[in-house]
Design a protein around this nucleic acid. Sequence first.
DNA 1: TTGTAAGCGTTATCAT
DNA 2: ATGATAACGCTTACAA
Lengths: 337, 337
Amino acid sequence: MERQITIKDIAIALRLSTSTVSRALRDAPDVGEETRKAVKALAEELDYQPNMLALSLLKKQTNTIGLIIPNLDYVLATMVKGIDEVALEAGYTVMVCQSDESFGREIVNTKRLLDSLVDGFIISVSSETMIFEHIKKIQVKKKPLVLFDRVINSINAPKIRLDNFEGGRIATQHLIDQGYKKIALLAGPENLSISNERKDGYLQTLKQNKIKTDKNFIIHCDFNQEYAYIAAKELLAMKQRPDAIFCISDRLAIGAMLAIKEAGLKMPKDIGLVGFNNEPITKLLTPAISSVEMYGFEIGKATAKVFLELIHSETDMSDKEIIFKPKLFIRESSKRS
Amino acid sequence: MERQITIKDIAIALRLSTSTVSRALRDAPDVGEETRKAVKALAEELDYQPNMLALSLLKKQTNTIGLIIPNLDYVLATMVKGIDEVALEAGYTVMVCQSDESFGREIVNTKRLLDSLVDGFIISVSSETMIFEHIKKIQVKKKPLVLFDRVINSINAPKIRLDNFEGGRIATQHLIDQGYKKIALLAGPENLSISNERKDGYLQTLKQNKIKTDKNFIIHCDFNQEYAYIAAKELLAMKQRPDAIFCISDRLAIGAMLAIKEAGLKMPKDIGLVGFNNEPITKLLTPAISSVEMYGFEIGKATAKVFLELIHSETDMSDKEIIFKPKLFIRESSKRS
DNA sequence: TTGTAAGCGTTATCAT
DNA sequence: ATGATAACGCTTACAA
């Protein structure tokens, strides 16, 4: 790596002090017209670039956002895109760290980023995360923190997320409206907020419609097509098999679909299927799968905006909560009428 | 943001000099056993964290890799995952910047990262990128640089990529073997290396099999399902319509598939279809789409390894080139025999 | 074994 | 209008 051109180089070459050069470069008012020109010309010629590290050390800010996410699947990639776009615009660079759904990696990532490189954090937790000491540490250090998508209610920080309860509700209500009576749920990992909220929406909707819930109809599994396939097979093998399955994600729905097809059942006639996320694939499959849109890009943009607001106004925003309303896209897999 | 605990705080509290504290913390040999213990104990108690910024400024290295990619679609997300994993293991943090296929944003990202925060670059260029001054600038500054996936041949730097020519070849040969005679090509943007290499594989294979190429059978379009749909419609509307379409990506293949279905044609009987990337969806569609696997995760890991090698051994590696062999997964969309 | 001082590249404060 | 100096937090000769 080449030695960087510094302010000092310019100062020496021009027989000026570093402070004058610094001032000239930043168009400070109290600097002679000629010196300014000379400095700028030489800076240009030598292709001088300020050393951000030195600036960051001095200013105690890096213009960098630490973004910690559990994976880079469709939904999160979309959210990252939104965050990125807003951040770039505002002059921030985003450090994306994937925890890969691992609590351990999430902690390592948090620690690394916390070790003073980033101005603040935007986090969506891993599915393993049940203890939040690492997150609290961020707050102890008074670094700005925004939670999105998979938020943690017990942490005091701005939260941007989908109304997952409502998502669960509209999906379930739709199935009921289509005449399905024995609706199973393929849920995600047990302790994951988004999964449980969707589940609550499902449960309450059943109750409101006076449909008894069958515990055996609720299966928790990892966000993984294979597991969903196995879980769905189990459901279909029951004597009193469900006549519809609501899946907490499209990946799960795809796994379920494979099991349904293998069982020789037809959607929507024999069984109804609804997914979540509204991934582009859902439109393309046969049958196309009904799914709940979660507006990932918008959530991403909103998240970054809240972050910027938080970082610029030192006011307390820990109560701030932006909740996006989901929308159900009804497709063949569940449309009977 | 809270004031950080510094070495100075510990020094004052213990009535030592900062240098002694620094030494004690780093287990330097020339420090008294007792002082070491005292320092470490207090550091622990105060939860002292070294200021990486100061260290970086001093050492002129940030343990950070600048990763510039055109998008976060399935293939690149997979590659990023591979890069991330290896980098994390080696103590590096990755700054992922999406150019969003925009030349302008690629330049902004490069400039920002170059302004001294990162130790080196891993880049896959945008589809708009035809001028490489920003990349050359990285080299002028002697920062380590590795290109992957969409590489630039005229730039002297290690390159890790798929054998795209071979990918084009096996896809085309497969179609020929299945008895297709009029094979069209849905290619990507005109100036994109991966697209042209795949195209060359296609062209040469046709030639080798003594099949005349029809210029009208080759359509360039953006990596976008909509465009592919339109392009495929055009192809199918020709009097002498193609009896097979090789698409340079799965997204394009999906667009083509929609057009094919709409035209009432059956795959593989009436028309053959082969995609590229082997995205998980290809298996799930009806018919399942044959596709060329490109081993994104492995390419990602290899890329990060080469980067680490480059950064640690100051040897010249600009000739290094790792080329992965693609593999065709044959599915219903093109399997006649 | 410990302390002093210079330096990494920059800016801000105070003189001149 | 310009310069000297201290400071950001840390490491590393060099002294003691």
